[in-house]
């Protein structure tokens, strides 16, 4: 099937100053060669720990950040070379839902203004028609038209997240990038919002890039999952396959670190040594080797590449 989104060797390096007085420059390699495709109608999960580059990847795809290198195609359009007008059109089709339900809504705008902003920007509706459309969108995300004139501070975190989703849906996107959309919410509310995402996908035929640090959530909602570590994808496969047969030692460790909601003693847990490394000091060879329990002599010398080791199962590890 024709992929909806193609990401090719995406890189983003941020310059950082190291010395206080002399400009000893260093690079923070937030995203360092990420490639993947998303098919129309599927949900691609992107999982990894803080600082692994998953949010930066999202912002690069939306061209909210300028990339250092790489290409992104949405359908046939090359996102990074699109001109102003093409970009405006692209923005209708590519939308994002943010993590923080507080900072992602302008506190000085009413719900109608927030959700209706995209309609105004793209001249899709105005006046009464706009109010009507916003009310429909609110109902679609489980709120009501009585909320039109209210302000963000009157809502709870879960409701705010629904407002953010309605804002994104207003312009009729095809691909929705959800950047940790439930991690700031309470458990009971998380489930509501996850269900909402699933319902909307069915109803509107949306394609999702779903980013989270919680493997349970990503696994639940995604068809395929990419695991990121220090700016790179280390494993990518169907979500059931990832759970049944995780190949990369990092994925295995992530999986085993998840506290299962079951008090019975489980098999031995694989606890990783050390802390996640900083994307400024990237180790030689495999970036995971300093923490890897299965490393061998090749790992610190040679950088592995992401290879398809079985049908649809990609992993970047010398073991395979």
């Amino acid at each position: 099937m024709e992929p909806l989104l193609v990401v090719k060797d995406l890189k983003k390096y941020f310059p950082v100053k190291k010395g206080i007085f002399f400009g000893e420059r260093a690079e923070l390699r937030a995203v360092d060669g990420v490639s993947f495709e998303i098919r129309r109608g599927e949900t691609m999960g992107l999982v990894g720990e803080s600082g692994c580059g998953k949010s930066t990847t999202a912002r690069l795809i939306l061209r909210l950040l300028e990339p250092t290198a790489g290409e992104v195609y949405f359908g046939k359009t090359a996102v990074f070379t699109a001109n102003k007008e093409e970009m405006r059109q692209l923005r209708r089709k590519l939308q994002i839902v943010f993590q923080d339900p507080y900072s992602s809504l302008d506190p000085r705008m009413s719900v109608e203004e927030i959700v209706g902003e995209g309609l105004t920007i793209h001249r899709l509706a105005k006046g009464k028609e706009k109010s009507e459309r916003v009310a429909e969108l609110l109902e679609m995300v489980g709120l009501g038209r009585e909320h039109l004139g209210r302000y963000p501070h009157e809502f709870s975190g879960g409701q705010r997240q629904r407002i953010g989703i309605a804002r994104a849906l207003a312009v009729g996107p095809e691909l929705l990038i959800a950047d940790e959309p439930v991690s700031a919410l309470d458990v009971s509310i998380q489930a509501q919002v996850i269900n909402l995402f699933e319902d909307l996908q069915k109803e509107l035929g949306l394609t999702y890039l779903f980013i989270a640090h919680d493997l349970r959530v990503v696994k639940h909602i995604s068809d395929r999952v990419a695991v990121m570590y220090l700016g790179q994808i280390v494993e990518l496969t169907e979500s059931d396959e990832l759970y049944r047969n995780p190949l990369h030692p990092y994925t295995q460790a992530l999986m085993s670190a998840i506290p299962a909601a079951d008090p019975r003693p489980k098999g031995r847990r694989m606890v990783l040594e050390g802390d996640p490394l900083s994307p400024i000091h990237i180790p030689s060879g495999c970036r995971f080797h300093p923490r890897c329990p299965k490393r061998f002599d090749r790992c610190d010398k040679e950088e592995p590449v992401l290879r398809e080791v079985s049908a649809g199962h990609w992993v970047s590890c010398h073991l395979y």
């Binding site: 009971s188 489930a191 269900n195 699933e198 696994k219 639940h220 059931d240 759970y243 999986m255």
Partner: peptide, 15 residues
């Protein structure tokens, strides 16, 4: 709670 064991589309979360 989403569970790792369950496959996609297998179980809708009971919110």
């Amino acid at each position: 709670l989403p569970r790792l064991e369950a496959g996609k589309g297998g179980r809708r979360l009971t919110a």
